[in-house]
Computed example of a mutant assay.
Amino acid sequence: MELGLSGFAAVILAGGQASRLGGADKATIELGGRSLLERAIDAVVDAGEVVVVGQQVPTERPATFVLEDPRFGGPAAGLLTGRDSLLRRFPTIAVLAVDMPHLTSSTFRRLHEAAVGHEGAVLTRDGRRQLAFVVETERLDAVRPDREAQHGLAIRALLDPLDLVDVASVGSEARDVDTWSDLRDLASEAEDR
């Protein structure tokens, strides 16, 4: 993978159904006075282009909003829809879930650095891969299935053929918000700092 921070695009996955949050739009949920989407956009501030796969909401920075196709087709369908919505071609794509509020631009710099000599890099927590990674656009295109097979496809299955290096998370950067309890825990941790 060629390292070049200005040479990457970002796809933020914000289109899930959030069933454990009662269907709330995760992108608009606030933590510390900022929405999860604004925090996600901040984490990819170095990207040349940002596509958000989810409902359009106001943002401070420019982003393109699209809905995954097929609708509620899962994260792999969202990623591929986001990739197809990029206006320009980039050597690499950074991918992140909107519900990981402690990801930062440093996270994605580390992932890009670790990816040199590989086809990408993925953030891990306790040995498990998280929805935060960088991947070569050309290699992603080479392994993508047809539209019908994208529905319900797990990200793990999509990325399995690729040479992705694991990068251990630092601190709480891999924590996510799946439940209201998760949000309360993250908010109380922030207050304790």
Rank of each mutant, 00 (worst) to 15 (best):
P145S: 05
V143Y: 00
P62V: 01
A115C: 01
A114M: 03
E119L: 05
T28C: 07
L186Y: 07
V122T: 12
R147G: 09
T81D: 01
D99Q: 09
V177C: 07
L96G: 01
R125H: 08
M1D: 11
R184A: 13
G78F: 02
E119T: 05
L159G: 01
E173N: 04
D192N: 13
A94G: 14
Q17C: 14
M1L: 07
D185V: 15
R129L: 11
R20K: 12
T104H: 05
T179E: 06
L37S: 14
R39V: 05
Q17T: 15
G120T: 05
V135G: 04
G4Y: 04
D69P: 05
S188T: 13
L153F: 06
D178L: 14
R128K: 09
P75Q: 15
P91S: 13
A63C: 09
A154Y: 14
T92G: 14
R193V: 14
Q130N: 07
S35A: 06
L67K: 12
L123H: 00
E30H: 02
V66F: 11
D176C: 12
G23W: 01
I155S: 13
D146K: 03
S105T: 12
T59A: 09
L164A: 05
L103S: 04
T81S: 06
H118C: 02
G7D: 07
F65N: 09
F8M: 13
L80S: 04
V66M: 11
F65A: 10
L162A: 10
T92R: 15
L36W: 08
V50Q: 01
E30V: 03
D69M: 10
R147A: 15
I155D: 11
V165D: 00
V52I: 09
